[in-house]
């Protein structure tokens, strides 16, 4: 545990030798990576390699067995950790959107700042409308999730997460469940965020997108990071045969 104040020159998220098993299945076998403030990293890799498990550990949706995860200098897996405080700093967007179906788009975005952060309603509403506007959904404020397309729902989900003013955003294959036509609108929203300086950890299969927005790309296979590097070298100079095979299949 670190009580020293975190400063922006230190990694915002620091993952050190993380191990995690589900029963007998060891899903993470010593993963380490750092994310600086404002950095965008992409995690790629075959299905079942533990990508989702890894990023779910960052906001304590999953526990870890060994190792350390620090967010702004705070150990995530300290038993005394205030999980709610952590989650106010870490936003997450899921593959299946997981919008609240009984609430409109606007209410979905407003709910957490209102009920969790207890911010004043007028201010929250103003910010929520601005966020919906920012993800290009002006006019859809009153729509229920069931009335929106997958891409639209996913953009509401992004806005909902942003409404908490997080310091880092986690994206878990957020375009994997979408129709091809709507993938782009969601990627654009994320790119806009990234360019705005938001720290992002993305699990994605969109290689073109990763190449474009990522500062660093990590390739995982069977619970370890096999290879990593900036996109300029990662795609052209992959050395590990597993990375090469994966890239040849997907590109």
């Amino acid at each position: 545990m670190s009580d020293t104040a975190w400063t922006p020159d230190q990694p915002l998220v620091s993952i050190r030798d993380v191990h995690k098993s589900f029963g007998d299945l060891e899903v993470l076998k010593g993963v380490s990576l750092d994310v600086m403030k404002g950095e965008v990293i992409c995690i790629i890799g075959p299905s079942g390699s533990g990508k989702s498990t890894l990023i779910r550990c960052v906001n304590a949706l999953n526990t870890i067995d060994r190792g350390s995860i620090m967010v702004e200098g705070q150990e995530v897996h300290d038993p005394d950790l205030d999980k709610l405080e952590l989650r106010k700093k870490v936003g997450m967007v899921f593959q299946q959107y997981n919008l609240f179906p009984h609430k409109t788009a606007l209410e979905n975005v407003m709910m957490a700042p209102l009920k969790v952060l207890k911010q004043p309603p007028d201010e929250v509403e103003k910010r929520a409308r601005a966020l919906i506007d920012r993800v290009n959904l002006t006019g859809k404020e009153g729509a229920y999730p069931g009335e929106l397309s997958g891409g639209q729902q996913q953009r509401v989900a992004i806005a909902r997460s942003l409404a908490m003013n997080p310091d880092v955003m986690l994206f878990d294959e957020v375009t994997a469940a979408l129709d091809p036509e709507t993938v782009n609108e969601v990627l654009l929203a994320i790119k806009d965020l990234a360019q705005d300086g938001m720290t992002c950890i993305l699990v994605t299969h969109e290689m073109g997108f990763a190449r474009e927005v990522a500062d660093h790309i990590y390739f995982t296979d069977r619970g370890i990071i096999v290879e990593h590097g900036p996109p300029t070298t990662f795609f052209s100079e992959a050395k590990d045969p597993r990375t090469q095979e994966f890239l040849s299949q997907i590109l």
Partner: peptide, 24 residues
């Protein structure tokens, strides 16, 4: 997924139950 979404938005368990799960 509804529990997880609410949890990652820092809802307490009670809030998740009463604001998200039970209304549904």
């Amino acid at each position: 997924g509804q529990w997880e979404a609410a949890e990652s938005l820092a809802y307490t368990r009670q809030q998740t139950l009463w604001l998200v799960i039970l209304p549904q």
